[in-house]
Design a protein around this nucleic acid. Structure first.
Lengths: 196, 196
DNA sequence: CGCGACGTTGATTTGCCTCAACGATTGTGG
DNA sequence: CCACAATCGTTGAGGCAAATCAACGTCGCG
């Protein structure tokens, strides 16, 4: 069984590659296993990889003034995760990237990515489309954050990412949605009551 | 005086083009003048252009449930504006794009942009880098929104975009920062007192 | 000049946070 | 394999940052 099949399918959603072009792309990725709580990136370090999740779940967060964690992104199977600002501009990271459970990743290094992009326009197109799509999603998040109250933000997330909700600890989800664990707990309690 | 000089300089920040390549790029843009309050895009329409601001100021916003406006982005000289989700996926817009004052724009159509990207990898690279940079900035905004309180969000914006603060009406800035006009007014009052 | 758009100020309300104490579940070293 | 400690989630009381509501000031412009 090809462990790269998830990535192959992902790539095919963006660009059309011949078999050898696809292999050439795939070969730049290396497998990595991480255990729960393992840290992939810490503030101050420069992100060296884009991480594609084959299996498991990860989370990126920043620390606020008073030490509280604010979740910036999640990643489950078929998603990417890294400190994007750090990777793209090769600047020190501000985010932690950690595993929420034992996970299997595929990593491509910044250098290999740069090489690929200059090597063939198809790879350039892949990363362009990927960035465009990611950008559209970030806008969506900004809009929901500005527009909705705590309960509706939760319901929106639940509707759009039900798999993530199941995998992720409550405090992480709460901090992603911009509320406290306690309040999310109360919202969920309220939802349970409504469901009868 | 070359009215395209601002755009030329902008492009040169991202890619190296020969004179004829650059002209080829530039020729895809057409000039457009808009007056204050003129609407460039409304919800339901499909965004047909990327707009580069030569002069003036614009604003994109969505309407919340209860009819209140939430500013998604601003654009002043040297910035781009459109409903990104609508443009990239050619879906119906959710945002309004309007002029905050009489403005001069350069527009490139979606089709021309697509053509350029398939025509030469350099143009593809331009749009890839542009999307990557925009993405990093969107993350920055998400982080400040999660991390800071109302006053600190204002101060952060003031520090990073002083020119925008000067050009933009208060209610638009307040809704961009996720607070009410009244509260922003009070914050500014507080700041004035501190400054003595 | 008069009206509409924009901003200010104060009184009151509220959505969400903080704090605190307590279950439930998981993990781990002896 | 159990005991006990973390870790994670729940529940309630009280507090605060920011919203709402309301009334009024100001400025630009048709």
């Amino acid at each position: 069984m090809d462990t790269f099949i998830t990535l192959r399918k992902y790539i095919q959603n963006y660009i059309q590659l011949g078999p050898e072009e696809e292999d050439y792309f795939i070969k730049k990725f290396s497998k990595k296993k991480v255990v729960k709580r393992q840290i992939l990136l810490e503030p101050g370090q420069i992100a060296k990889h884009r991480n594609f999740v084959l299996e498991g779940a990860l989370r990126a967060y920043v620390l606020g003034e008073d030490g509280q964690e604010h979740t910036i992104s999640f990643a489950i199977e078929g998603w990417w995760i890294t400190d994007y600002q750090s990777l793209v501009f090769q600047q020190p990271a501000t985010q932690y990237v950690v595993a929420l459970e034992d996970s299997h990743l595929l990593q491509i290094s910044f250098e290999d990515e740069e090489f690929l992009k200059s090597h063939s326009p198809k790879y350039e197109t892949f990363f362009r489309k990927h960035a465009e799509r990611a950008l559209a999603y970030r806008y969506r998040r900004i809009i929901t954050n500005l527009t909705l109250n705590a309960e509706d933000r939760y319901l929106d997330f639940l509707k759009n990412y039900p798999k993530v909700v199941l995998k992720v600890p409550q405090y992480a989800l709460a901090s992603y949605l911009g509320m406290t664990t306690e309040f999310l707990s109360k919202i969920r309690h309220r939802q349970l009551l409504k469901r009868t």
